Simulated scan of single mutants.
Amino acid sequence: MSKIHATAIVDSKAELHESVEIGPYSVIGPNVVIGSGTVVGPHVVIEGHTTIGSDNKFFQFSSIGAAPQDKKWKGEPTRLTIGDRNTIREFCTFNTGTVQDKGVTSLGNDNWISAYVHLAHDCQVGSNTIFSNNAQIAGHVEIGDYVIMSGFANVHQFCKIGAHAFVGMSTSLTQDVPPFVLLNGNPAAAHGVNIEGLKRRGFTREQINGIRSAYKTIYRSGLTLEEAKAALIAEEATVPADVALHMRAMREFLDTATRGIVR
């Protein structure tokens, strides 16, 4: 308990690993669970039914696990879950879920969350993402692994962003984004494939070329989405399995999109 600052307020019912550090004037509520090696800086409030994994770092003035900003919420014990090795910078706000959806807001592992980021109720964020300052996502948004959200980008409720997509600065998203796509603008427009990000993550030239080919089929061929999906199925049969895997991810995303895709 020596790692908990004397001015911090930690409810006796909270479950903290003995290695957790709590900074000055932070507040930890009764239904909070925090795993080993996590460091909570000064002036952080962690409340609600919130479960946090290991080796996370919370910087000052964040609000974690507060009630959802949803008028339908009537005090139900909804949850927030945060994985391992995440960095959460200053003034972030993460809310719990609602019973109208999954009942849980979740953040995976190894994410870099910059200052003033808002994760609203029922959002599902994967792993290895980067959120730049002031990126904001509304309720019920799903964001895949390795997505990059640039500064001041914002996402409408119920949108989905596929893995490895790149959302440019000040982009306003009201539709879904397939995996690997690079987009920017207000309203948002697609501008190709996130090639630089894929290179950094070890994608081969053949895999990137396959993804670019799938992108052209969806965005540049003049085909309807149904026609593009049929064309992709035929194309996937002609390439190696490790290339077809990523092309298929783009095609299958089209079947799950609920708000239409940015196109």
Rank of each mutant, 00 (worst) to 15 (best):
H121V: 01
I113E: 04
K102N: 12
H121Y: 06
K71Q: 07
N109Q: 12
P179C: 05
A6Q: 13
G185N: 14
K57I: 15
N111M: 12
Q69C: 07
R89M: 06
F131I: 13
M1W: 09
I148T: 13
G185Q: 14
T7N: 06
A188E: 13
H156K: 03
A230H: 07
L245P: 03
E227G: 12
C92F: 04
E18Q: 09
K199D: 11
G29V: 05
N154K: 09
S2D: 14
E196L: 14
L245E: 15
Q100D: 13
T129I: 15
F59D: 04
A67S: 08
I161G: 07
I148N: 15
P77M: 04
G126H: 08
S36R: 10
V33Q: 08
H5C: 02
Y219C: 04
H140P: 07
K3V: 00
N128S: 09
N209Y: 01
I64K: 01
Y215D: 10
K199Y: 15
G103P: 08
D122I: 06
M1G: 14
K199I: 13
V262C: 10
I28L: 07
C159N: 02
G197C: 13
A66I: 00
V44S: 03
T78A: 00
V155S: 05
A163H: 13
F158L: 10
N128F: 00
N194D: 04
Q100S: 15
I22N: 03
Y219P: 03
P77I: 05
H17G: 08
S19N: 04
K74S: 03
L183Y: 01
M149W: 05
G35K: 07
A241T: 15
T98H: 09
N31F: 00
G162D: 12
F61L: 13
V33K: 08
V33S: 02
D110P: 08
M1V: 06
S2I: 12
